[in-house]
Design a binder for these strands. Structure first.
Length: 793
RNA sequence: GGGCCCAUGGUCUAGUGGUUAUGACGUCGCCCUUACAAGGCGGAGAUCGCCGGUUCGAUCCCGGCUGGGCCCACCA
């Protein structure tokens, strides 16, 4: 049999990717009796940019798991998805089509987004997912912008409203003055900045330090520590606020730090979270002086219409003029800011839809414990987040584009008008509704937070509403793979929704992907300019080598990028190609019948079986790197370095050694190589498929190695043999070392003295060491023809 | 300010309460051996970050420190 001398990865990748596509190799079979393993895949936003290694790694990491589970006998439900319901899509469509979304209608614009996204996604599918050798079932593709996804989000909303877990409220909400929208707690980032702490004279010459003098008009209370001797007598008194001259009460609260500033805290509605807390706790007045654009309103008096920054300047100027500004100090401060525009957030009172979270903290913690986190310590992040929640989840956004909130408000009785579930998806702007009282329904023009959709990804992926039977059977899903930075959003909201809607967890396992750092140990990002492009690596080394690297990463931990790892993978591929070539060449006349096995062949199969078992255990625990290591060890050392060398003589000289002994070697080679290929198949799908098709596909029943069965146990249990075999291998190693130390070729003939126990391997031992004579004795000896050298055991 | 993770030969990495502490890349030496010189075989190279504690015994458990990475937080 003529086999190609070298493995051409580029050609092989193209060939097999096409093959898998054409044959729908990875199609989910709803009729199969195998247990189902379902994956709640993270839908990426299909960008045209280059593929960052970090992303390529995280997506490939759980893709390897999909392959592992398929190989272990599961019916794998592995749907690809695209997240095209966000701002990036909006922007892209506006720019590409040269339209202004504010001038088209919402439904029309959404349709355009859907169409454009589909085009971009098609390119992405080919250039990223298929190129990486991913085994999605493309018939299960979903989009978060699709009508079906909208229906899921709106149905979930409706159910929660009816249940009372979703409500409309006039509440202080986190507000981005730039985007003019409410934000969820999870959308707030921290911004560290230097600011001025201003010491301002209030009535009675009381000195109060504040960083937000622009909020003087909103001041509703003064707080001191109850034990602070300086101010004890003030408690209960009223103090006049400078410039605005309204009076506020002095109160005591233990959270006030006497050491900070002057030990007096001014509470305004609302400068920050602490204000809201005290406002609620002490039932203070509401004096809102900031509008939706971040400008002062009527309450701001002469500062009305000024942006907060400007108002601050003016107020400070006026305070100074009136000699009410005692002093200013520099202060390092951390403030919340909008995650998109970095504008510091404000807190204003608006009408918003919220989903209850605070009420369910305990249950959510319990649900968190029901999920199997990999690694375990990542659950702590979830728990910390849940414990520290301070707000219910604001799900309405004052944005133009997104999934509409399906409600109307009666213009007469002001009741909320809800649609029927079977009307969904619906855009209230497009559809008129009447109230029971006869009043006209005014549509809610807000849209959902995008997490409102994403948090139902299991429902979208499993076709909750389209295929209720399937959903019932497959939920909860088996696995959610995701990155650690969205534990507080994606993981949290999904668990929340699942708890509220279905009273159970959304999936059994949650894995946190590896976080790739640059070679110096810093996070990779475009802005830092240290991001490495996965496409370049794939062009240079091939996908399987890239995937080999991915297979060495551990879940939930950091991994500095190191190109050397790829070289190791490259070498492994070469080795695998060559070893397979050798094996297949020697299997031409193999009839697959089981012959009487030689002791060393049995020993090798025994070792293999142990390895397979061990690997399975690791694979099930998502310990891919350990499985890879074990596979490599067996393949390279046990199989190539030792076994292949041992059987060469039997394969080459059947006349001398006996035909049956050659068959025994062939049998062992066949099963070992096939098993080795399967063990590596999830990590390196292309080369293993290529080799499988060089020979095995004609013998085995499956068309593709990737849907073949996990190696069956051969039930070899000869423990004595294992010990003896180990000793035999040890002798080989010693003889090699001996020849090496004497600068001799490995072919150099020697005379050996070995333990009598090893006599069962006599012929193989003789052949592999090229011994002209073997004697038995207690002491191990190697002797050259010319000079005599002895080695002891 | 709180919390989490990490620290092992030059580099990257595995691992365990107790034998000579993995493996890879690199390096050095030997070997053209009919699968593979993009190879084989062998060698050198680590007081397992630092300081304490628990223990008969710690790289592994506990506490502290240092350095790196990350998450969270209302000091007005």
């Amino acid at each position: 049999m003529q086999l190609p001398k070298q493995y051409d990865f580029k050609e092989s990748e193209k060939k097999w990717q096409k093959f898998w596509d054409k044959n729908k190799t990875y199609k989910f079979n709803p009729k199969s009796k195998k247990p189902v393993y379902s994956i709640d895949t993270p839908p990426p936003y299909a960008s045209a940019g280059h593929l960052h290694v970090g992303h390529a790694l995280s997506y490939t990491q759980f893709e390897i798991i999909a392959r592992i589970m398929r190989l272990l006998g599961y019916n794998v439900y592995f749907p690809p998805g695209y997240d095209d319901n966000g701002l990036p899509t909006e922007k892209y469509v506006e720019e590409k089509l040269g339209i202004n979304k504010a001038k088209t209608n919402r439904a029309e614009f959404r349709k355009l987004c859907l169409e454009e996204s589909k085009k971009v996604e098609k390119v992405y599918t080919e250039n990223v997912f298929k190129k990486l050798g991913h085994s999605y079932d493309w018939d299960l593709l979903y989009q978060t912008i699709s009508p079906e996804s909208q229906r899921v989000a709106q149905t979930a909303f409706l159910k929660l409203v009816k249940k009372g877990d979703c409500y409309k409220a006039k509440e202080p909400t986190i507000w981005c003055p730039y985007h003019e929208t409410a934000l969820a707690q999870a959308e707030v980032e921290n911004l560290t900045r230097t600011t001025k702490l201003n010491y301002i004279k209030f009535g009675n010459d009381l000195l109060i330090a504040t960083t937000r003098p622009e909020f003087l008009s909103s001041c509703v209370g003064i707080f001191v520590h109850p034990e602070d001797k300086r101010y004890k007598k003030l408690i209960g008194k009223e103090i006049e606020v400078p410039l605005f001259n309204h009076k506020v009460k002095v109160m005591a609260d233990e959270t006030v730090d006497p050491e900070f500033g002057t030990g007096i805290m001014m509470v305004c509605t609302f400068g920050d979270n602490a204000d809201i807390e005290k406002w609620k706790k002490y039932n203070l007045d509401l004096r809102i002086s900031v509008d939706r654009e971040g400008k002062l309103n009527e309450l701001g008096g002469k500062y009305k219409g000024m942006k907060l920054e400007k108002a601050r300047e003016e107020i400070l100027k006026d305070l100074e003029e009136k000699e009410l500004l005692e002093k200013q100090e520099e202060l390092q401060q951390t403030v919340g800011s909008c995650w998109r525009c970095n504008t510091p957030v404000e807190y204003i009172v608006t009408d918003q839809w919220l989903i209850k979270t605070l009420k369910y903290k305990k249950e959510l913690l319990k649900r968190g414990k029901e999920v199997d986190w990999h690694p375990k310590f990542m659950r702590v992040r979830y728990e910390d987040w849940v414990k520290n929640l301070g707000w219910d989840w604001t799900i309405s956004r004052q944005r133009y584009f997104g999934i509409p909130i399906p409600v109307w408000y009666c213009d007469k009785c002001h009741e909320v008008i809800l649609p029927e579930e079977n009307e969904l998806p619906i855009d209230p702007i497009q559809v008129k509704k009447k109230c029971k009282c006869g009043g006209k329904g005014v549509p809610d023009e807000d849209v959902f937070d995008t997490w409102m959709t994403s948090s139902n990804s299991p429902e979208i992926a499993l076709r909750w509403l389209e295929k209720p039977e399937q959903y019932k059977k497959l939920a909860p899903m088996s696995l959610r793979p995701q990155s650690h930075d969205i534990i507080r959003t994606w993981a949290f909201y999904t668990i929340l929704k699942s708890h509220l809607l279905f009273k159970r967890i959304p999936w059994k396992d949650l894995i946190i992907n590896t976080f790739v750092l640059d070679s110096k140990g810093h996070g990779m990002s475009k802005s830092k300019g240290n991001a490495i492009c996965a496409d370049d690596l794939i062009d240079k080394y091939g996908v399987d080598v890239f995937r080999y690297w991915v297979g060495g990463a551990n879940l939930g931990s950091d991994l500095p990028f190191n190109e050397k790892e790829l070289i190791a993978g490259q070498k492994l591929l070469t080795k695998m190609w060559n070893a397979s070539k050798f094996v297949i060449m020697n299997l031409e006349d193999f009839d697959r019948k089981k012959p009487k096995l030689e002791p060393i062949d049995e020993y090798t199969l025994l070792k293999l079986e142990k390895t397979v078992k061990n690997i399975k255990e690791n694979y099930i625990k998502y310990n891919i790197s350990m499985a890879r290591k074990l596979s490599e060890e067996f393949f390279w050392h046990t199989f190539c370095d030792n076994y292949l060398e041992i059987v060469k003589d039997r394969l080459y000289n059947p006349d001398k050694r006996g035909k049956e002994k050659r068959k025994s070697a062939q049998y062992t080679l066949y099963h070992s190589l096939l098993t080795i290929l399967k063990l590596f198949a999830p990590i390196m799908p292309h080369i293993t498929e290529e080799i499988y098709h060089l020979y095995f596909d004609k013998k085995e029943k499956e068309k593709s190695i990737h849907i073949s069965e996990w190696p069956k146990e051969m039930k070899i249990t000869k423990n004595k043999l294992e010990k003896l075999g180990d000793e035999f291998i040890d002798v080989i190693s010693k003889v090699r070392k001996f020849k090496n130390e004497n600068n001799k070729s490995l072919k150099e003939p020697v005379k050996l003295t070995v333990d009598k126990k090893l006599s069962i391997f006599l012929d193989d031992l003789k052949a592999v060491t090229n011994a002209s004579e073997i004697r038995f004795g207690n002491e191990f000896k190697v002797i050259l023809n010319t000079n005599i050298v002895t080695t002891n055991t």
